[in-house]
Amino acid sequence: MSFKHNRITELFNIEYPLIQAGMIWASGWKLASAVSNAGGLGIIGAGSMYPEILKEHIQKCKKATSQPFAVNVPMLYPDIEKIMDIIIDEGVKIVFTSAGNPKTWTSHLQSHGIKVVHVVSSVKFAVKSQEAGVDAIVAEGFEAGGHNGRDETTTFTLIPMVREKIDIPLIAAGGIGNGKGMFAAMVLGADAVQVGSRFVATPEASSHQNFKDMVVKAREGDTVLTLKELAPVRLLKNKFFEDVQELYTKSPSKEDLTSLLGRARAKKGMYEGDLEEGELEIGQISGLINEIKPAAEIVKEMISEFEETKIACQQF
């Protein structure tokens, strides 16, 4: 299958319009390089890395693949200036930004020859991102794992609405984990898809095996969007989640919720494997994830299923 004239494959110089999300505690150099070597775009998730750790991951990724890869940077990161300096110094050519104003870093990064993609969860912020001059946009529906949009707009509602309002390349994210979902998103106007949760269940993901196993066991309804007063986040149900629900029965303040959340709760769950007290961020698509398999196999299967679906739809 050739995607030669696809706007995203041309923008990033990759084979397939398939992007691996830059998930905290999962997206290290092993996963990013595996996806890039398979023809997609791998992303290193800087959100859970100190600057020197990110530098190490970028250098290892450059040794592991000759293909393009990206770094995802949440703009709320406290050491963002150091992070951006490392990205520029190490010659990274693609940056995905999120959780902040795209105007802050876009022109600076582009002045160093870097393509900038901003992640949004609404039409309003998609338009603002285009006005800020980004090269492409990820529009993420609330099915996605991790931190999410407050409007709770689903991916397949969000994508066509965003497509109507912007002209630049559009990447769909949230609830996409197979070739059929990829095809559907692109029919609705996306130029590519970004996949997160499916790549958690891979040997290359840096997240803990306990977390991966729980993702595979998850079924419909096992994830819930919660903590909206702080920053909406989709979590697997566990003891910590039940503690949050119990606190909600007492009409908690933001301070109460912040106290319960504490520090490093996501690291405890996803990276250290504490399935009781940790925060376990994953998307609704986890209900369709039934096994752990190499990232390259996932890419191959998604592209194959995409092609089969396209052929099948031509028969209608």
Rank of each mutant, 00 (worst) to 15 (best):
P169M: 10
D135P: 06
E276T: 01
V193W: 11
H208K: 11
Y77M: 13
S36E: 09
I166H: 04
S36R: 04
L260S: 03
S33H: 02
T106M: 01
L288G: 02
K180P: 00
L247T: 03
G45L: 03
K62M: 12
I282C: 14
A295I: 08
H57Y: 06
G40R: 09
G262M: 13
W29T: 03
D135F: 05
S286P: 01
G91F: 07
G39L: 08
P102Q: 00
G189I: 14
S33T: 04
P74D: 08
Q284I: 03
E276L: 09
S129A: 15
F306K: 02
F199E: 00
G45V: 09
I44S: 01
T104A: 13
H208M: 02
V73Y: 07
R198K: 15
I86C: 05
V92S: 10
I137A: 10
L158H: 03
I166Y: 00
V216H: 07
A205N: 08
E301N: 14
T153V: 15
V193S: 03
I176Y: 10
H112I: 03
T309L: 01
Q314F: 10
S66Q: 14
K128Q: 14
R7F: 00
F199S: 01
L109D: 05
N148E: 09
I311V: 14
S2P: 02
G100V: 11
I285K: 00
V193D: 04
G45D: 08
M84V: 15
K250F: 05
G149R: 07
V127Q: 13
G287F: 08
I87G: 02
Q194K: 10
I83E: 04
